[in-house]
Design a protein around this nucleic acid. Structure first.
Lengths: 229, 229
DNA sequence: ATTATTAGTGTATAGACAACACTAAGTCAA
DNA sequence: TTGACTTAGTGTTGTCTATACACTAATAAT
């Protein structure tokens, strides 16, 4: 259904930087383009904003359609509006970043017929359009935000060990942390609850599993508490 | 020059939350709408993104056209993309906030034929569209950002006293600060340079004037220094 | 010269942060 | 079953940082 307007309009798209964390790296989800321009290149999942959906709904739909990912932490990152960022025509894109529990999705992405794959962020090079810049912006935001908002948990399964959590911060912040100080600090904040379970199937002493208690966190926040790693 | 597209497109606009600071309050610049919808209501300056200009260029142009403000600190805030945020048609807007040296512009805005005026942010009520939400988001961002980035100086004249600077933080953060601790901290950061001038035309002891030395700040930043109030 | 107003200055205390190394628990293989 | 290996888990001390706090100095106005 074609549409005519009094003045020309930029096209409006969304793009998603979906982060995941495995044992080694921080990963980003990319899809291979099967159309020109940048055919065969890897790109961020994304697409046009439809006239009857909100911008955020559009990202969620595209993520679902292109990668099978749904119900994840999603936050708007930045709107990229340079005139020449797409060689075909004027396209403005609203970029979001998503935090994905890799354990839930690494299989799906692999079995999906689409050409989607997780890349270590340090190896995501030669992307289509200005997607490398968008990725860099997302990474910078993640690094900044993870230190003063408890969003890291979105990358972990519901129950996790303190060592996993520490590794998460070390990976994202690219800096080593002291084990004792880390534990003191994070447990002192009093929003992690120890479950009565421990790790299974590990070839060494099993660690206690913890959960992030969002309600406790919100109550603390109301009382002026400020998260910080 | 009308344009036709295969699929309908949202219109794309920009809006600017221009902050200024005077002796009493943090102010925001609003313009009175002379067209429906919301005729007669106060609104943020803004307008359509043209096909041949970047999104940031569009805000700068609209700010200049509607309020006479140019060459100010400007940073993208958030893109508002709800389906029903404009009653006429689907409009997505990219909001920016600007920091304005009020001394430069309070006269201009007053003499300009347009109906533009500075309001204390606490008195900016009943705005058009979702502009109150945008203002709230801008305020929240300003409060957060002013604490760990030296952007406050954008609201002051090139030379200012430490008391003015302290008042700035107290106004924005809505909290009193200790004079001695504030001075110790801000001077200790070592990017303010004392000029050899002092205040003029004040009915009490004149205070020394300082300048923010951007180069010094950038050098410090490279060496891992982090600003924080 | 007295009053009023804002500028400008130092110290002591408490709390936060950083550095640091050993024992405990469990798996695995000889 | 014992010994080797791997990761879990735990406190103390010194250093630095943040906070609380009150008086004198300079200038203008009367």
């Amino acid at each position: 259904m074609p549409a005519t307007y009094e003045y020309p309009r930029p096209a409006l798209t969304v793009d998603a930087v979906a982060f995941g964390l495995d044992e080694e790296d921080l990963k980003v989800l990319l899809i291979r383009r099967d159309l020109e321009p940048f055919q065969g290149k890897w790109a961020l999942p994304g697409g046009f904003v439809r006239i009857e959906e909100s911008v955020e709904d559009a990202v969620r739909r595209e993520l679902q359609e292109e990668t099978g990912i749904a119900q994840v932490f999603l936050e708007q990152l930045y709107t990229f509006g340079a005139v020449d960022r797409d060689p075909r025509e004027r396209i403005v894109t609203v970029a979001y970043y998503a935090l994905v529990k890799l354990s839930d999705y690494r299989i799906k992405a692999a079995t999906d017929a689409r050409d989607a794959a997780w890349f270590a962020v340090s190896e995501a090079r030669g992307l289509a359009f200005d997607h490398e810049r968008i990725l860099a912006a997302a990474l910078e935001r993640l690094k900044g935000k993870v230190r003063y908002q408890p969003i890291g948990f979105e990358l972990l399964p519901p129950q996790f060990t303190l060592s996993q959590l520490q590794r998460l911060y070390e990976t994202i912040l690219e800096t080593p942390l002291d084990k004792r100080n880390f534990r003191k600090k994070i447990l002192g904040m009093d929003f992690l609850v120890a479950s009565d379970e421990v790790q299974k199937d590990v070839a060494h002493r099993a660690a206690r599993l913890y959960r992030f208690d969002r309600k406790k966190y919100q109550q603390l926040q109301k009382r002026g508490f400020n998260f910080e790693i």
